[in-house]
Amino acid sequence: MKHLIMVMLAVVAISCDGQRNSPKPQELEQDPLNPIDTVCTACKDSTVSAKDADLRSIIFEKAGNIPLVTSIKNKITFHNFLRNNSANYANNVMVYIGRSDSTLFCYRQGEYNTDSRLPIMSASKPVTAAVIMTLVEAGKLGLDDKVSKYIPSFNNDKKEITLRQLLAHTSGLVYESRFDSRSDLTLQQNIDSIATRTKLQFAPGKGALYGSVSYGVASRIAEIVEKKPWAQIFQERVGSKCGMQDVVYSPDHPKNPATGYGIMCSMNEYLRFLTMIYNKGTYNGVRVLSSASVETMEADNSNNVDQTYGLGLWRYEIQHNVAKEVACLSARGVHAWINREKNYYGLLFTQAGFDTTIQPNLAFRKLVRQNL
C-alpha cells in the first residue's frame, strides 16, 4: 500500500486528472453549454510537488467514495509509456487528453512548455480545411466547384479538379513543388506556376496522393473569392474565434504561405482549435463551423478512392464508412486526434520528427483507446 501511494504521488507531480480548464476571456460571447477555454496550465506551469499534493482529492471524487483506481491506473500506465519512449521524442514532448471541460491527463518532459511557439507542419491542414469550410457555409464556395472556375491558369489538363479533391488528396496534383517556400513569390504566382509548370500524377478523382500543394491551391481560391490575403481570411474566420490571434502561416514567406504545412503555433493554441473540432464547431461559446461542416470534414471525401481521407483529417477505426477516430499527423511528430466513440481528444506535441514518433504515437493512441 505504501508503495502504491508513493507511485500515485509521483504521478500527481507530472500529470493532472479532472483539472478544470482556465476561464473564458471576458470579451468572448458566453454559452452555458460550452464555456471552456482549453489550455493545459499544468504543463505550462511548474509541476506540483508531492508534498503539496492533496492525495485524497486525487483518489476520491467525494469523501467516502470508492477509490478511483481505474483513473489512477490509467495515469500510471500513460506516464510509464511516455517515460519508456522518451528517447523516441528526443526527451521533448507534451501530451494532453481531454473530455468535455475536463483534463483527463497531461504530461510534459523537456525544454518546451505549452506556450512555446513551434512549427506544426501538416497539422496545419485541418486548420486550412476549416477556413475553407466557413466559405462553403457562407455560400461563397462549393466543395464540388472546379478550380478552373476561379483560377484561369487551371483551364488546361487540370481543369476538372474540384475543391473537394484538393482537400481530400485526390486532385492528381504533385504533393510538393519548388515554388512552395519561395519568398520572392506571392501565393498567386506560386499557384499559377503549379498550374502551368507541373504534371498531373493521375486523372482527378482516380487516385490518392497525400500532399500540401493542393492546400495552397484551395487557399488561393479563398483569396480570390474574399479579395483578401490568406492571413486575413484565416484570422477573421477561424483564428480570432479560436484564441489563435498570434498564429501565423510561414513567417519566412508570408506572401506565399504554405497553407498545408506552414503554421507556427503553441500547444495551447492548437488545443483550442482541436477543441473546436471536438465540440462539433464551437469554441468557447462561439460558433466557428456548423456541426454539419465538421461531420463533412470527418467523412470519406475521396469517393471511395481511399477512405483514409476526410478534409484535412485522417480517418481511423472505420466501420460502415464511419470513422470512430480522426487525426492529423505531422512531419515534426505533432499528432492530434479525436475519438468520437469514447468522447475524448488528445494531442502529442513534439519536434522529434515523424520517423521516430509515428509508431509510439499510434501505440499511445491505442493505449488510451483501450483504457478510457
Results as ranks from 00 to 15, higher is better:
K2H: 10
M8R: 08
L9E: 09
L9D: 00
S15H: 06
S15I: 02
G18H: 09
R20V: 10
S22G: 09
K24A: 13
Q26L: 11
L28P: 05
L28N: 08
V39E: 08
V39F: 00
S49C: 01
A50K: 09
D54F: 13
S57W: 05
I58M: 09
I59C: 02
F60M: 13
A63T: 07
I66Q: 12
P67G: 07
V69N: 06
T70E: 13
I72P: 03
K75H: 07
I76Q: 02
I76V: 13
L82R: 14
A87H: 11
Y89G: 04
M94A: 05
S100I: 04
L104M: 13
Y112P: 02
R117I: 15
R117F: 00
I120E: 00
S122M: 02
K125W: 03
K125E: 02
V131Q: 11
V131A: 11
M133A: 11
T134W: 10
V136A: 07
K140N: 03
G142P: 06
S148V: 00
F154E: 04
E160H: 09
E160K: 15
I161V: 03
Q165W: 13
L166K: 08
E176R: 11
R178Q: 12
R182E: 01
D184Q: 13
Q188M: 14
Q189D: 07
K199W: 01
K199Y: 05
L200Q: 10
Q201L: 10
P204H: 08
L209D: 01
A218Y: 05
V225S: 03
V225Q: 01
E236L: 05
V238A: 11
V238L: 15
G239C: 04
K241I: 01
K241A: 02
K241C: 01
G243P: 14
G243Q: 08
Q245A: 14
K255G: 04
N256P: 05
T259H: 03
G260M: 01
S266R: 04
Y270F: 15
R272K: 14
T275I: 06
T275H: 13
I277Q: 10
T282L: 01
Y283L: 07
G285A: 07
L289F: 11
A292G: 10
N301A: 03
N301L: 00
N301I: 02
N303I: 01
Q307I: 09
T308Q: 06
Y316T: 12
I318N: 07
V322N: 14
K324R: 14
K324F: 02
E325N: 09
A327M: 12
L329D: 13
R332D: 03
N339E: 03
E341P: 03
K342R: 12
K342A: 04
Y345G: 00
L348S: 07
G353W: 10
I358L: 06
P360R: 08
N361R: 04
A363W: 00
F364A: 05
F364S: 00
K366R: 14
